[in-house]
């Protein structure tokens, strides 16, 4: 990282051969006011390890940013309440006072635009599948999906009916599968903790 920093610190070199009579073209020319404004608006590309504070105060603030981001993401997962069927009742019971999920930072949020996790709780039928896909795409990155219950995992007890989607992972990528019919609230909490571990493990990707 120091090497990269050293390269960035050196000024760019002038061209070697200059044509006689031609004006000296310096690589650094005065920027126009429009370009100055564009510089202010365009964020500089971020490369890990090259932040300004590392050059100014090397060795004093050595917090890995990706770890901070991962911890903050996992501690405040806001699920979109996507209660489809019977598992929704156990999901609500998990949010309530007996098995409180709020202590993990999990706040149920009705809107997909402001949520991190989608808990697919219940059977996904083929009539509902386009809506599920649309809701998944409406969620901003980073997003995760918890497939709660047997129906969302592989169709569950209704898998033999041809209007039922055999598992929600046929249309969206799933991160954590919570088995059960319906899973106990403790099992859903375990699913959330597993998702938190996964977020910590995957923080560099």
């Amino acid at each position: 990282m120091e090497q990269v920093a050293a390269e960035k610190a050196a000024p760019p070199a002038l061209p070697e051969k200059q044509v006689e009579g031609a004006p000296v073209v310096a690589p650094h020319r005065e920027r126009t006011s429009v370009e100055r404004e564009a510089d202010l608006l365009t964020p500089a590309p971020y490369e890990p390890g090259t932040a300004l504070y590392r050059q100014v105060l090397p060795g004093i603030i050595q917090v890995p940013v990706d770890a901070v981001l991962a911890v903050s993401r996992k501690s405040s997962l806001w699920p979109m309440t996507f209660g489809l069927a019977c598992c929704a009742i156990e999901m609500i019971a998990t949010f309530m006072s007996r098995h409180d999920l709020d202590r993990f930072g999990v706040v149920p949020w009705p809107s997909p635009r402001q949520s991190d996790v989608m808990i697919v709780s219940g059977t996904v039928t083929k009539k509902m599948a386009p809506a599920v896909k649309l809701l998944y795409e409406q969620m901003p990155n980073p997003k995760w999906v918890i497939s709660m219950g047997a129906c969302a995992t592989n169709g569950g007890p209704y898998t033999r009916y041809d209007r039922v989607l055999q598992g929600v992972d046929k249309i969206i990528p799933v991160d954590v599968y919570v088995p059960g019919c319906p899973p106990r609230p403790e099992a859903l909490m375990d699913g959330f903790l597993a998702l938190q571990e996964k977020i910590m493990e995957e923080r560099n990707k």
Binding site: G122, T123, T125, K127, M128, A131, Y158, Y161, R163, V164
Partner: peptide
């Protein structure tokens, strides 16, 4: 019909 899972058909089996 978004939750039509064929309970009646399955119970016949």
């Amino acid at each position: 019909g978004y939750m039509h899972r064929g309970g009646e058909k399955l119970m016949e089996a």
